[in-house]
Design a protein around this nucleic acid. Structure first.
Lengths: 158, 158
DNA sequence: GCGAGCTTGGTGACATGTCAACAAGTCGGT
DNA sequence: ACCGACTTGTTGACATGTCACCAAGCTCGC
């Protein structure tokens, strides 16, 4: 094994800052969301993704892929959300294995009530603290990392 | 409540990219760490923080504060790590309530074995994909957000 | 020096996430 | 039509994280 190339001072600042920001943002956003709307972040994400689809319904596997969740995790979580009346499941019309996740009126109401406050919190704690250049840099940089990790190389690789 | 100011296209790109990057990076780094060193990310963080202190020992509350973990979480996690022989607890010499978390030789060996591969993974999946300007921007931006969320305003607030 | 109120760390109950295994369904070659 | 390989969603066991609460110890005013 080669001698490790440790992070230099600037790299370290970026890496530690990223991790600390992650943690603090999570705590804050989750707290706000729970207090204001009674939703956890995972709840919000499920409802948000569902509400963005044309018919407020998605096949379980499709939803899991979009969210980067395992099917098992999503299945468990949907059971809990179903218990609370936020979503229901329907049979797939042509594929007997398939399960279609559907937003209920209560689910639609919940995400509708939660979204403004959540977006405001995201602005307050992150977006509105950044310059336009930083927002663009963050967008570009995250997209590059995401593309690599998704196995979609931007250019030829070594 | 005022009409919500939704995120515009650039802000959305940054926000969604950030969240997607977070998730993919987590999955990848956790997978690498578990395969190469048999450690979870929380394990690594505990060992890493401990190994950076002069005597490889910290009071539980001090460690929890540094990690932004609750004491309860840390106490539970230490119990599991203690079971595996990575850390031990000692009594605080002057404060009868205190518990001192100490890195064992096995813990020191584990973090020593894990660190090079982990840093390499962080480079491969994040740091080395960024330009120097992006690294500085990320460092600056995360620090600003962290300072705000830590209740340390950089300038006068409204 | 003592008692109210705080801090510290631990615990149990519960919520959430992971993993391996499984039943049922689909698909494709023959 | 059928069989083997794959896909889909669920489940149970277990690992991890959260929350409320508690016992023990500290601190400070009196």
């Amino acid at each position: 094994m080669d001698a490790p190339r440790w992070l230099d001072e600037r790299e370290n600042r970026a890496w530690r800052g990223y991790r600390r920001m992650r943690r603090l943002l999570d705590l804050e956003l989750a707290r706000d969301l729970m207090q204001d709307a009674g939703l956890s972040e995972p709840d919000y994400d499920v409802l948000s993704d569902l509400s963005e689809t044309p018919d407020q319904r998605l096949r379980l596997s499709e939803l899991a892929d979009r969210m980067l969740w395992s099917r098992s995790r999503l299945s468990h979580h949907l059971a809990r959300m179903q218990q609370r009346g936020l979503v229901t499941r329907e049979e797939h019309p042509s594929d007997g294995r398939g399960s279609i996740v559907v937003l209920t009126p209560a689910g639609r109401a919940a995400i509708g009530a939660a979204a403004p406050g959540h977006v405001a919190a995201v602005r307050r704690h992150l977006i509105d603290l950044l310059t336009p250049e930083e927002i663009d840099a963050l967008g570009a940089l995250t997209q590059r990392v995401v593309d690599r990790l998704s196995g979609r190389p931007t250019a030829a690789e070594g």
